[in-house]
Amino acid sequence: MQTWLNIFHLGVKELRSLGRDTLMMVLIVFSFTVQVYLTAKSLPESLHKAPIAFVDEDHSPLSSRIINAFFPPHFLTPAIIDQYAMDPGMDAGLYTFVLDIPPDFQRDVLAGRTPSIQLNVDATRMSQAFIGNSYVQNIVNGEVTAFVQRHRAVTTLPAELEVRARFNPNLSSVWFGSVMELINSITMLSIILTGAALIREREHGTIEHLLVMPLTPFEIMMAKVWAMGLIVVIVATASLAVVVQGVLEVPIEGSIGLFVLGMALHLFATTSMGIFLGTVARSMPQMGMLMLVILLPLQMLSGGITPRESMPELVQNLMLAAPTTHFVALAQAILYRGAGFSIVWPEFLALIGIGGVFFVLALGRFRKTIGSMA
């Protein structure tokens, strides 16, 4: 009983110490509010306000029809330029797309020839260039076909494809980006907070005070784990309710309580990782460098950005040892698809096992570090 009382009181001390760290508090609030909102809104949902220009060397009804087919919100109002302004405009980044309609284009179309329109694309604007290329081709082909046929004919295909997008019927990137950024913030802050708490003890000299008390390394470490984990759980749950559901209006299908339980198991593993990194790093700058090495694989290879099925099989197998892989899987299943415990229990079990291994490794390293200080 005394052990758990020590853990509780040490955890309260950690919470008070964190409350006095203004910079860390700002980071927590920013990560779970502004960062979640900006990331969700900045993801390329579709082509939106792409700058486009035309070099109209034909000046025909068909060329005017093509130019007038490009309008907001997919494109900005088209700019009409001459051929000598095309290259300087693209070099200056004024236009993502420039279409050069050649002379006698309409005459060649009506004569049954196959004239070419040159489409210049600024491929440095990757998202717009990739999506907009198909948009431009479809619009031009549609306008030319309608002009030749004198009407917009409905094409009858031999088979009709019925598309039903489940769980995200509008294919909105906000629904996906907000939850994934929330998961990334949970992982990042849990590692940073526990690692920084240990480094802060060392830098302020309070770790020596703990060593002279009748406390075990297990009690010291467990206090940091539950205190920092509690902060992340509270702030992340509030962010899910206020920012994701409230401000961004993302519908949550499953049980938030079940998600919070999975988050707690995930935090058990990531806070242990933070303790381990805190024993390796000697200062916050070193901690920051280690975070870059650890966070990037955890975030990019967990399935939150790219589906795991598209990764090499070796990477898929290696990432099974990462807690983020299983946390992303259960979060998507619960929050998007409304899955219950009967579906996500394998991920819960995996998080318990991974968290236990990380905790034992971190505790061993922590004991060794404490012993060297003593």
Rank of each mutant, 00 (worst) to 15 (best):
V293L: 07
R308V: 14
F327M: 01
A227S: 14
V280K: 04
Q332D: 11
M1N: 11
L99C: 02
S255N: 12
N120P: 00
Q286Y: 06
S134W: 07
L23T: 05
Q2M: 03
N168M: 12
M24S: 11
D91Y: 11
L361T: 07
A322I: 01
P312K: 11
Q286G: 11
F147L: 09
H74K: 05
L296S: 05
V315N: 14
I305M: 15
P217K: 13
A238F: 14
G288T: 03
G89D: 01
H326F: 04
R200H: 09
Q149N: 07
L210V: 09
I131G: 03
S46Q: 08
V29R: 04
I343P: 07
F268S: 02
M180R: 11
I80N: 10
F276L: 13
R16K: 11
S190H: 01
I7N: 13
T270Y: 01
K49N: 15
M373C: 06
G89A: 03
R65A: 15
I52E: 10
R202Y: 06
L349P: 06
A374L: 07
P61C: 00
L298A: 04
Q149E: 12
I294E: 03
V36K: 02
L261P: 02
M319H: 04
P307Q: 03
G371A: 15
T194M: 08
T145N: 13
G278M: 03
A146N: 10
F130L: 11
L351S: 07
V212P: 10
V140D: 01
T271Y: 00
M373G: 03
E201D: 14
S302L: 01
P251L: 04
H59Q: 13
Y135S: 02
P297T: 06
N138A: 12
S178W: 05
I66C: 03
D100Q: 14
G371H: 15
L15A: 06
L349E: 08
T206S: 12
D122L: 06
